[in-house]
């Protein structure tokens, strides 16, 4: 066998192996998508159907009737978390990257350690604190809690980005008479647009996908994001798997959409520190 033939064969083998890995990794999602178009009876037949035998939209009809208010709740929580994360993180990251403050190392250490604290620890105490100040069962309470996923991450990623903004940019603005705030708001933030979008996308997904704070801080039926409603739905109607699968698809849609629309930002976020450090 010639060298060229061997390397072509090797490439083919790699592609096949990669396809195999992807098949295993993506199979659960495929199964859910197929399941969402099947009736529950068909789902629980003895043989696996690689494609729905008689595709039906009945599950989606059920879900849209039952879940539209939950989808709206999740969207509010996601957007709120993104807004909170930006308001808190962008200025803080700028200060931690570009100002000479004695507390910087301490604050960055605190943020690194904050990421380690498990959410259940925060949830138990926040429940008590929110009970006291009347934030249980409210959007502001849930959004404040969901910020714990997003904010340390956002500050650290944005800070890493701000290091790459040349100091000359800010010096020029200062010489032209811009105040510190004007320099920040008109010059630095527009430059950081892509990092800001990355952080906002992740914060939205954190808020959308949160379950533990929704489970602990919301204890009525007034607000119920889709993550919580899938869980309660499963408990109440564990027979109707078709509808559960359709809800799962609906809950996945934002992640999938973002993967397509904001792929470059997501890739940037996932490898954040190791690339921009």
């Amino acid at each position: 066998m010639s060298r060229v033939e061997r390397s072509t064969l090797l490439k083919l083998a790699c592609t096949l192996a990669a396809l195999g890995c992807l098949a295993v990794v993506l199979f659960p999602l495929y199964a859910v998508l197929v399941g969402s178009f099947e009736t529950t009876n068909e789902l629980f037949s003895r043989n696996y159907h690689w494609l729905p035998q008689a595709p039906t939209l009945v599950n989606y009809r059920t879900v849209l009737q039952a879940q539209s208010s939950h989808i709206a709740s999740s969207a509010i929580v996601g957007l709120g978390t993104a807004a909170l994360a930006l308001v808190v993180s962008v200025p803080a990251a700028y200060a931690l990257a570009k100002y000479r403050l004695r507390a910087t190392a301490v604050l960055v250490s605190v943020l690194l350690v904050a990421q380690i604290v498990p959410s259940i620890v925060l949830a138990t105490s926040l429940f008590a604190v929110f009970h006291w100040i009347g934030l249980v069962n409210s959007y502001p309470g849930l959004i404040l809690a969901d910020g714990t996923y997003a904010i340390p991450f956002a500050i650290l990623v944005l800070r890493a980005f701000f290091f790459s903004v040349p100091n000359e940019t800010m010096q020029a603005a200062c010489v032209d008479g811009a105040s510190e705030w004007q320099t920040f708001a008109r010059i630095v933030v527009p430059l950081a647009r892509s990092a800001v979008i990355t952080v906002a996308v992740f914060a939205f997904l954190n808020g959308w996908g949160d379950f533990i704070f929704a489970l602990t801080i919301l204890n009525g039926n007034t607000i119920e994001p889709i993550t919580l409603s899938i869980y309660t739905y499963l408990g109440d109607y564990s027979q109707n798997w078709g509808a559960v699968m359709a809800s799962a698809v609906v809950a996945i849609v934002p992640a999938a959409t973002m993967l397509v629309v904001a792929q470059r930002y997501i890739a940037a976020g996932l490898t954040a520190g190791s690339v921009v450090g």
């Binding site: 992807l22 990794v25 997904l205 996908g209 973002m258």
Partner: peptide, 12 residues
């Protein structure tokens, strides 16, 4: 594609 599982809500 391989990062898709990472972006799903964990409860899902």
């Amino acid at each position: 594609l391989i990062i898709v599982p990472w972006l799903l809500p964990l409860i899902v």
